[in-house]
Amino acid sequence: MTMATNETEETGGRNDSEPLISTEVTSSETGRGSRADETVLETRNLDVYYGDEQALQDVSAEIPEHKVTAIIGPSGCGKSTFLRSINRMNDQIDVARADGEVLFHEKNVYDEDVDPVALRRKIGQVFQKPNPFPKSIRDNVAYGLKIQGKEVTDEAIERALKQAALYEEVKDKLNSSGLDLSGGQQQRLCIARAIAPDPEVLLMDEPTSALDPVAASKIEDLISELAREYTVVIVTHNMQQAARISDKTAVFLTGGKLVEFGNTNKIFENPDHQEVEDYITGKFG
């Protein structure tokens, strides 16, 4: 009885404060909605701890669908932690613990009945250091499909490689090892691997920091393309990159606090917080 009351109350509260979002979620039952600024991911009062050390403090953010959201901030401020708490890769770290909510389509991913494996099949990730498997290029791309019990077809592999802007370079050597590619190619292979099983969200943790400028700009172009089909959340240390490719920007500052979150233009031109302005203009620290 009391629980039911609580639930209605809670839902009521949510509807009161954010009526728009609530209706949008109901309308997106068909899958990929195309309406602008529909929230696909939302964190509410998220705290993450590593043992006794707190890495994220009370982070609340709404990540819009089919947009590129950039996460910036100084080293050690919790950007990677934020990303890992979305697809629950933090579960792999023994000492990591999360409080608060991460809502994916309004469902808290930390609920008892959520399987992190199922979650990760909907939210792909690309890592800082390219990590292709010691398999052929084809098998690398097919990996996610195979794992998720989806059909592996040449078309699916070709499509993923094309989306990752790698197809032209490797179409004649799909059977050679993924480790034989250059760093930039490897990273695009990892992107192809992540998008082949068709996730909804793509998390990228400094995907270009290990690459030379040419390879990096290739991937930057690619990211804007990817946003047509996927929701992209990207961590970057490169302000220009964030300004160039993202629609929204989240600025974390030391202590794991989300200081400002808004449209990229606004953040880079006229931020609300002095600390953010200092950080962006390089005066920080």
Binding site: E29, D115, A118, Q148
Partner: peptide, 18 residues
Amino acid sequence: STDTDHGLEITGDVADDQ
């Protein structure tokens, strides 16, 4: 009813794999 849509529960293929 919206909850069933997110597909994150322990069901189907994932459940078999797990």
